[in-house]
């Protein structure tokens, strides 16, 4: 098989490289500058949100805030709680979305159109208005102060997009692949599991990332459901540094940076698979 890279490389001249890098450099500067500001706040002593200096590293920088997170607050526990909740949501999201998306892509049953549309419909109601009834529901189900309630809600917020995105990707994979597998004697499920799913890995990556992110930084629902500090997930833990007109900005910024590290790590890990799906595309066309 010809490596696509080699093929494209022939076409990219030095000038083009220069232009591409210039464009990417500008994009990177734009994307990271505000985050550098957050880092500045996190390593600056005293709780100031704003500064008049443009320098990224203040003269009197210190890692005190990062230390305080772990010594004065159960930050380690919160990280663990968050990982627990988020990993479950991610697994649920990927499993349910990959199966549902597949069925919606391959089968023509009467409720198909309606299902697809109603997935979208669930996203249309302003979320702030759903909070009160959700709380009433969870409370009568005795799901307050449990992770189960949180996980169910997070999964259901992430799923509509995930299902749609999986379905969209399955649509680009030709039928002939499963048919060939079926003729060789594979069951319907095996054909899906062994042939189609691996091909859809870019979509699985997107699904995983999306379900991860929608659970990882969420705090509004979590704040309603969890009452015990020991049970907090990272975002509500973080929120507890924020007070109306009395925010501990240093801790808040340091916490936010730590919250992003697992997200970045996961992304680094998953990108491998973002590129993995293209080997069999040649069957189409």
């Amino acid at each position: 098989m010809v490596k696509i890279g080699q093929f494209l490389m022939k076409k990219t001249s030095k000038l083009q490289y220069f232009m591409i890098y210039t464009a990417l450099f500008m994009a990177v500067a734009w994307s990271i500058y505000p985050i550098l500001r957050v880092i500045t706040i996190s390593i600056r002593p005293g709780d100031n949100l704003l500064t008049e200096s443009l320098s990224i590293i203040p003269d009197d920088w210190t890692f005190d805030n990062y230390r305080k997170l772990f010594t004065d607050h159960p930050f380690g526990t919160w990280i663990w709680n968050s990982i627990l909740v988020t990993a479950t949501v991610m697994l649920t999201g990927v499993t349910l979305a990959s199966t549902a998306g597949y069925a919606l892509s391959r089968f023509r049953f009467p409720g198909r159109e309606a299902s697809l549309f109603s997935l979208l419909v669930t996203q249309m109601f302003p979320a702030t208005m759903l909070l009160l009834p959700l709380f009433i529901m969870l409370s009568s189900l005795h799901l307050i102060n449990t992770y189960l309630g949180l996980i169910v809600i997070y999964s259901s917020t992430a799923l509509p997009f995930c299902v749609w995105s999986m379905k969209g990707y399955y649509d680009t994979i030709p039928y002939s692949l499963e048919e060939a597998a079926r003729i060789d004697g594979a069951s319907r499920f095996m054909a899906f599991y062994k042939i189609i799913l691996p091909l859809a890995s870019p979509a699985l990556v997107i699904t995983a990332l999306f379900s991860f992110m929608s659970a990882w930084t969420e705090y509004i629902v979590a704040a309603q459901v969890l009452w015990y500090k020991e049970m907090f997930t990272l975002p509500i833990g973080l929120k507890s540094f924020q007070a109306n007109m009395n925010t501990e900005w240093g801790l808040y910024a340091a916490g936010a940076m730590i919250v992003s590290i697992p997200a970045i790590a996961l992304f680094l890990f998953l990108t491998k698979y973002l590129i993995g799906g293209l080997t069999l595309g040649s069957v189409k066309g």
Binding site: T99, F107, F109, T122, S156, P160
Partner: peptide, 21 residues
Amino acid sequence: FGVLMVAPAALFIFGVVVYPF
């Protein structure tokens, strides 16, 4: 097979949304 593949996700989503709606 098709219905069973869709059902878990559908139950999840609508179980959460129906009452608040």
